[in-house]
Design a protein around this nucleic acid. Structure first.
Lengths: 204, 204
DNA sequence: GCACAATGTAAACAATGTTAACACCTACGC
DNA sequence: GCGTAGGTGTTAACATTGTTTACATTGTGC
């Protein structure tokens, strides 16, 4: 975070924009959202507070950009986990495993980076999650579509399915990030929730 | 919120503690959590900022007490909704309706009072929800126990059941409070989530 | 009726986000 | 090459926060 690719004098930082967001990430990750301040970010970036206003409208916008970056990270984390599932002859089984890998990754991210997870889903703009968390949402939709294709999921409710699945797992992830659930209970809870989602979305 | 039961002079407020929390409630309810400030609360209570420190350690503690009060309100709201379910000859059906009434009330509260719902579940103390939201948690446990008694719910997973149910509905409620789900989708989503929870907890 | 505890006020403090006026550096037109 | 314009930094101020300290007022128990 300390001045990457700087040339010549050190009056100009070189890449303050990225450095600032990176510093913000470290701050939140270590000490929580309330520790996020313009002056602290400026210090960590080796720059005066006012300099940040050349790159961000205000603190809120900086926070929002950090949140967007974290949501992207979350999506990539989920993608990576899903890609570890090896395709087998049993296409239905494979599809289910991939779906579950996404859910597990979602909750794992909340457990591994609770503060980042929290900041990622603070929003004041009232946007639907489908737009709010692009990558993760697309991965989920893709997975549910695949489940439909292999005949596991009821085609009639495919449209509403992502919202159901997201809500159910999101609730657990939020509580995990808040450490409101004992670690030893988390795995079992997730498994039952994923089970419930699948049953709710299956043919009856 | 303006000075209840005041007698004689007006140097002493009379019931500043309650007045302050009531003012805080109004502030959050109208303009969101970020509008919650010592000075604003003092103004609304007709008192100087420093006076509040006779009744609260700091702003954070005041906020925490407001949050606790809102969680209590939520619990009473759920209780009231559940009590509207008339017992019928079909005990199993009645138990299911009561369970669903609790879930509906939870999400309705989040829809009706989004800002209050949000502040209610901000916690830094890492307490499990079972202690964090006493009344609502007890109602849920009671409902699930009843479902077990009528033979609908698998007794083997009764212990973990409340956490599953809470998580699933909580996720939806959080997103509803954030207005991240279109209103027209909320009812259907809730119904499917409750359906999934019941299936996950039933005998297989 | 008097002392003491409870509860209020006013004024200061440090720390915050933000802005305005100024300084420096880089890059591009001539 | 040179100079100038624009991008990027600094310093100093500002208003607004939460909080504390010293003092004022009121209610209460002996």
């Amino acid at each position: 975070m300390l001045t990457p690719t700087r040339k010549g004098s050190d009056y100009h930082h070189g890449d303050l924009r990225h450095s600032a967001i990176s510093a913000a990430r470290n701050l939140v990750n270590k000490d929580g959202i309330s520790s996020l301040g313009i002056r602290r970010i400026a210090d960590l970036s080796g720059v005066s507070p006012a300099a940040l206003y050349r790159h961000f409208e205000n603190l809120e916008q900086l926070r929002a950009e950090l949140a967007a970056q974290v949501r992207q990270e979350l999506g990539e984390f989920m993608q990576h986990r899903r890609n570890r599932i090896k395709p087998s002859a049993n296409r239905k089984r494979t599809a289910i495993l991939k779906f579950e890998a996404l859910g597990e990754a979602y909750v794992d991210f909340a457990r591994l980076h609770p503060r980042l997870f929290e900041i990622a889903f603070i929003q004041s703009n009232e946007k639907p999650i489908s737009e709010f968390s692009d990558l993760a949402w697309d991965l989920l939709k893709e997975s549910l579509t695949e489940l439909t294709a292999v005949g596991f999921l009821d085609r009639k409710i495919l449209e509403s399915a992502p919202m159901i699945a997201w809500s159910s797992v999101h609730g657990l992830a939020v509580l995990v990030a808040q450490k409101a659930i004992a670690v030893r209970d988390q795995d079992g809870a997730l498994r039952q929730i994923l089970d419930g989602v699948q049953r709710a979305l299956s043919y009856k």
